Simulated assay, not measured.
Amino acid sequence: MASETPELTFRPAGPADVPALVALVESAYRGDASRVGWTTEADLLDGQRTDAEAVAEQIARADTVVLLAEAAGELLACCLLEHRGDSAYFGMFSVRPDRQGGGLGRAVLEQAERTAAERWGAAEVEMTVIGQREDLIAWYVRRGYRRTGLRSPFPYGEERFGVPRRPDLYFEKLVKAVSA
């Protein structure tokens, strides 16, 4: 007997969502729980991915929206969009580890691109991905993002971004043209 999946809905996060958001982001990227999914950074970084203060600050910013994806009132995924002139920065992308690999992430990414184009008239969406995450970069490339070749250093010594498990981490910038 096939089960129906509740319809996915999207909404902007508010202050009351902060605890659930922090738990979702941490579960998707850090510790053993994150290893259920394929987006884990547990082999690259220890420590936290984010905290309540940082998430609350992002939600409160006028040029930012934290987009939640829910089904039947249950938080399944999130992402951050930040208006940056003609572009929007995409980050804090998290999908519950037990829901990864089934198209949910693709749906959230597509909604984020539409939101950036419609809300701010963004011509492109940009992001940075840890360069050592070739599997994740390849996933974005399959969705139309292009590697720019631009790299930025990982913020070593700033534990609020995690505790690196190797000395060669960096971020790579990816971009995609979008339209409303």
Results as ranks from 00 to 15, higher is better:
Y170C: 14
P167M: 05
M92D: 02
E124I: 09
A180W: 04
R119T: 10
S27T: 09
E53D: 14
L75W: 02
A71E: 04
S87C: 14
L24W: 00
W38L: 08
F90I: 11
I130M: 15
Q132F: 13
A138V: 12
G91A: 07
L81P: 00
V95S: 01
G47W: 06
A28W: 02
S87W: 12
Y170N: 14
A116K: 00
G31R: 06
L150G: 10
M1Q: 13
V65D: 00
G47C: 02
Q48N: 13
W120H: 09
V55E: 03
P12R: 12
A62D: 07
K176S: 01
T5D: 09
G14S: 11
Y156C: 12
G47V: 01
Y170W: 11
L21S: 01
D46G: 14
A56D: 11
G157C: 13
K176W: 01
E126D: 11
A122K: 00
G14T: 08
R30P: 10
V163F: 10
G149A: 06
P19Q: 04
L136G: 04
A107D: 12
Y140M: 02
A117S: 05
A72L: 08
A117M: 07
P6V: 02
A180N: 03
R84W: 12
V25D: 04
P164M: 12
E74S: 11
P15C: 15
R61A: 14
R166L: 07
Y89Q: 11
L8V: 09
R133H: 09
V18N: 02
A177C: 06
G47S: 01
D98E: 10
E7V: 12
D51M: 11
R143S: 05
A13I: 09
G85L: 10
G162L: 12
G37T: 02
G102S: 09
C78S: 15
S3I: 15
S3L: 14
L136R: 09
P15Y: 11
V175W: 06
T39W: 12
H83E: 13
L80T: 08
T128C: 14
R35H: 03
T115N: 08
A71N: 01
S34N: 02
T50N: 05
R151E: 09
Q111K: 14
Y170F: 15
L75K: 01
G37R: 01
A28Q: 04
L76G: 06
R166N: 02
F161R: 13
L81G: 01
A69H: 05
Y170S: 13
A122N: 01
G149M: 05
V36S: 04
R49E: 00
A23M: 06
L76P: 06
